[in-house]
Design a protein around this nucleic acid. Structure first.
Length: 599
DNA sequence: AGCACGCCGACT
DNA sequence: GTCGGCGTGCTC
């Protein structure tokens, strides 16, 4: 018996082996086989009768029965092609750890057939509506969450419906293996996990759910290089199952699917909305991050015994020269040093270089260097001066680990005012805050990312949801009439998307066209540039819109952004094919492909 | 990816 | 004369 095996290597081809005499293997089983110099785990993708003397023999069979059905393998193959990565790496990232498990059943094939229209729940009651939908369902349920914390939460929420099993790495390897097996056997019908659970079988008829569809954690760096939403949309069709998505602020991709009729938008009732005040920072003070509007709101909230959250966009400021305007940069990485006033030191966030803050400008020799931009550190100081009797804490989980983080969390739990970046919102339950203040929304809105508006909307909406209806939100911005801000103030999602969709369409951004980011890493500076330029030229000849290669700060990697249509993955794969690009075998390994990047 | 093979500069 | 750098190519 001959078997085709794929491995977790960046080579998108299978390798042919012979099964040991008398041993039968099936597609979807993992095996041990020697590849080049080492013995590795691989996945059987096809078998056929026959023998050959030119092939090696499998060393061991790891799974007593297949872990993936034929339909699941077909879906995995589709994910690999869509993400321009190898079949083997894709499967490796979507399977539970291999190990000696009891002889379980083989996951049944998906029946297919007409799938109901996917549903997207928005609005205040989105979680309750999804929960009710799942509670009514008698068959299998798969819930995919953005992170392990949310997986644990959903496992708890669904516990009354019948023991959910966890498929994510928040539980041990043994528990994950048992979860996959018990779902395939029908002993469990509810699976909860992160994106590593995307392929897990659940009993028919199935409902698939994606929590917080807009969350960027649904497409983190690394395999499988595809958005969980895209996998589940495809899976729902081939499996013939219902897909439910939830989001307070759907991605523009999700919204467009609803506009096109591919997804049914189900807005649940909105809750009473706190007052949203806009404070124009144009012409304001450079030495004071608080407008009068925000200062008064903080004062009032404290007087009423309400808790306050103040959001900044950076933990640390940069250090700028008051005379020539230059920003102090890391000489090696060319990015602005992060300046800590408390320690009088500067640090590079790329190479971690850390040194005492200089007292003269390296560009002009000027002697007046001062912080640039409102960091959490500076805003905290100003708040302490302004409200000396309030308990004020700064939340900075990146800088604090272990015991120090625990102390910071304890201080934040006690504090009346907590200052921090977007992550700070996690500390507060829905509807519990008296006030949220945004120091400067502009740093969010004005990043060179075309998704900046979407990100700003998401953050503002999440902030407002944490404020009680009799509380207040103050948004300081130099562009207070931006449509994202207006949409939040009016509690009207459509107000945002009508503008955002037009903007994306006009500039040919997703979801109207697809993007692919190719990173070329070279041994030498010149070589990387040459390869990047020739690759960019090839992609252009293949009919793609190609932005000129951009060098990274450390001059070792070049980034090419290519724009195309639905067939972009096929064109990129063909262009990187060995032999096509100047016959260079080593070409593919120098290039890292990120399809549909989100950052 | 990981590893072996192979062809050019600084050592005993 | 050799040791070892990393660039190149292969893996059934």
């Amino acid at each position: 018996m001959l078997v085709d095996v794929v491995f977790d290597v960046p080579v998108d081809r299978s390798f042919l082996y012979a099964a040991p005499p008398g041993v039968t293997v099936k597609p979807g089983q993992r095996v041990l086989a020697s590849l080049a110099t080492a013995t590795r785990a691989g996945l059987v993708v096809a078998v056929r009768a026959g023998a050959s003397e030119r092939v090696k023999t499998l060393e061991a069979v790891l799974d007593p029965v297949p872990v993936l059905s034929g339909s699941q393998l077909v879906l995995a193959r589709w994910i690999a092609s869509e993400s321009c990565s190898s079949f083997g790496s894709t499967c490796a990232s979507l399977l539970p750890p291999a190990g000696a498990s009891e002889i379980g059943p083989v996951p049944p094939e998906w029946p297919g057939g007409p799938a109901p229209l996917p549903v997207l729940f928005t609005g205040h009651d989105r979680v309750r509506h999804l929960h009710e939908r799942l509670a009514r369902h008698r068959g299998g349920i798969l819930v995919v969450t953005p992170d392990i914390g949310a997986a644990a939460e959903w496992a708890g929420l669904l516990a009354p419906l019948g023991q959910p099993v966890r498929l994510d790495s928040g539980v041990g390897e043994g528990a994950r293996q048992r979860a996959w097996a018990s779902l395939a056997a029908g002993r469990a019908r509810i699976g909860v996990g992160t994106r590593s659970a995307l392929l897990a079988f659940v009993p028919e008829p199935a409902v698939l759910a994606l929590i917080d569809e807009h969350d960027t954690a649904h497409k983190p760096p690394g395999a499988p290089r595809i958005h969980s939403r895209d996998v589940l949309l495809r899976r729902a069709v081939v499996e013939g199952s219902q897909l439910c998505l939830t989001s307070a602020t759907p991605s523009v991709e999700g919204w467009r699917l609803a506009e096109n009729g591919a997804v049914l938008l189900e807005p649940t009732p909105q809750a009473a909305w706190p007052a949203v005040s806009l404070a124009d920072t144009r012409g304001g003070s450079r030495s004071n991050p608080l407008t009068q509007t925000l200062a008064r709101a903080v004062h009032a909230a404290l007087a009423n015994g309400r808790r306050v959250c103040v959001l900044v966009s950076r933990h640390r400021s940069a250090l700028g020269c008051d005379e020539c305007g230059a920003v102090v940069r890391c000489p090696a990485c060319h990015v602005a040093f992060a300046f800590s006033k408390a320690y009088a030191r500067i640090a590079c966030r790329i190479c971690a270089r850390n040194e005492p803050a200089p007292d003269t400008c390296t560009a002009c020799g000027g002697r007046r260097l001062s912080p640039f931009g409102w960091s959490a550190e500076r805003v905290e100081q100003v708040l302490r001066r302004r409200f000396p009797r309030a308990r004020i804490a700064r939340y900075d989980p990146e800088a604090a680990r272990g015991a120090r983080l625990a102390r910071q969390l304890a201080a934040s739990a006690q504090a009346q005012v907590v200052v921090g970046t977007r992550g700070t919102l996690r500390l507060f339950e829905r509807g519990t805050l008296g006030l949220v203040g945004f120091i400067a929304l502009d740093q969010l809105l004005c990043t060179p990312d075309f998704r900046a508006g979407e990100r700003a909307l998401e953050l503002m909406w999440a902030a407002v949801e944490r404020v009680s209806p009799d509380g207040q939100v103050v948004i300081q911005s130099s562009t207070p009439d931006h449509y994202a801000v207006r949409a939040v103030a009016k509690q009207d999602l459509a107000e945002f998307y009508v503008h955002e969709v037009r903007f994306r369409a006009e500039l040919g951004y997703p979801p109207f066209r697809r993007l692919c980011r190719l990173t070329v890493r070279g041994r030498t500076e010149g070589d990387a540039r040459a390869v990047a330029q020739s690759l960019a030229a090839r992609l252009g000849e293949a009919g793609l819109t190609v932005y000129p290669p951009l060098r990274d700060a450390r001059r070792v990697a070049w980034t090419i952004l290519a724009k195309g249509d639905h067939d972009l993955p096929a064109i990129v794969t063909a262009t990187l094919e060995p032999g096509v690009v100047g016959g260079r075998r080593s070409f593919a390994r120098m290039v890292n492909v990120e399809m549909d990047p989100v950052d």
